[in-house]
Nucleic acid binder design. Sequence first.
DNA 1: CATCTATAGTTCGAGACGAACTATACAGAA
DNA 2: TTCTGTATAGTTCGTCTCGAACTATAGATG
Lengths: 183, 183
Amino acid sequence: MAAAAKPIRLTTTSHVVLCLLDLAGEATPYELKQMLVNSIEHFWPVPHTTFYDEPARLAKAGYLSERQEQGGRRRKRYTLTDLGREALRAWTQAPGAPPSQYRDEAMLKVFAGADPEAAFAGRIDWHRAQLAELEGYLANLKEGHEGRREDEWRGPETTVLGGIEYHRQMIGIFERFRDAGVR
Amino acid sequence: MAAAAKPIRLTTTSHVVLCLLDLAGEATPYELKQMLVNSIEHFWPVPHTTFYDEPARLAKAGYLSERQEQGGRRRKRYTLTDLGREALRAWTQAPGAPPSQYRDEAMLKVFAGADPEAAFAGRIDWHRAQLAELEGYLANLKEGHEGRREDEWRGPETTVLGGIEYHRQMIGIFERFRDAGVR
DNA sequence: CATCTATAGTTCGAGACGAACTATACAGAA
DNA sequence: TTCTGTATAGTTCGTCTCGAACTATAGATG
């Protein structure tokens, strides 16, 4: 029914919104942001303002339906339309994905001649904190297993396991680097 | 002398340009892009069009001086001004840096329920190719050591070593994942 | 009912990104 | 010479992304 106004390009950000809404059923921008923390944020950072812009954009193009709460904050609640569900399915099932990106300003500083110790200060602690967060989230997920269909938790769990592995390896890299001293 | 017109915010992109020009002495946008390939691109991707926009922006603010070739393509050649050199130095010497970011659309797909084998198809090969490229670049760098001041190659070399380590670990992660089969 | 803090939402402008296109240079074939 | 192909070099433009700064509502505390 939702008349697709003008066609838009679906970006990765779009798919983040679509897949969060698929999990949540219905959600406000604020709730979407909460869902991101401790989960996908580790692999795809999204600033919170995006969750106010992007759903509106998707709704206008017919991928979401939007309804506004009547009292209080009059928040907007979004759900997937059939078009949105279909777009998500198509994206999910298409094999492959663009190569991953690793962005590190500290690397840049070292490239420019900075002292690595200084540039990477705090990194090990940071990765450890991320790791701890993900491990907590994993425990949470496991508790929620009973009474859920596997396809509801398998994806998030694999992702979190991947993240844990990633941070472990990064910690290893920086520890070895530190122990090697200034080369 | 270069009258600093209106002050601009220096972004990471700005610092990429500044540090490349510091290495090159003088360069055209095209040359800057060439320098990026096989080196910083691994830690900070920058689309080539940026090297036409950003130097112009920096020049307008007094960080670079700009002169245009007379014949042929009338390319613009940029060099650091004292202001630019100072900005680079300040950034390089400031300790710390924002946390690194890892972005991976395949992870997102898995989160959304995709088959990991399909989503990560080709990843190991891709990391191996990156690794090979960096190893080649490292060999290049080593050849260039003689007759150069250490501070000209130490930064790039450390960076490349870091990149090599990074890709090795990522290959390890994906190999272990593959060998574990579908969990 | 005043105030504090957490939660929720918005605005805006600058910057990043990439598709698509144009232009120049140069080498070898016709 | 002119033509053609290909590599090199540069540009335009619109959309998307980002984050700082701000406003508003809700519920708790005194």
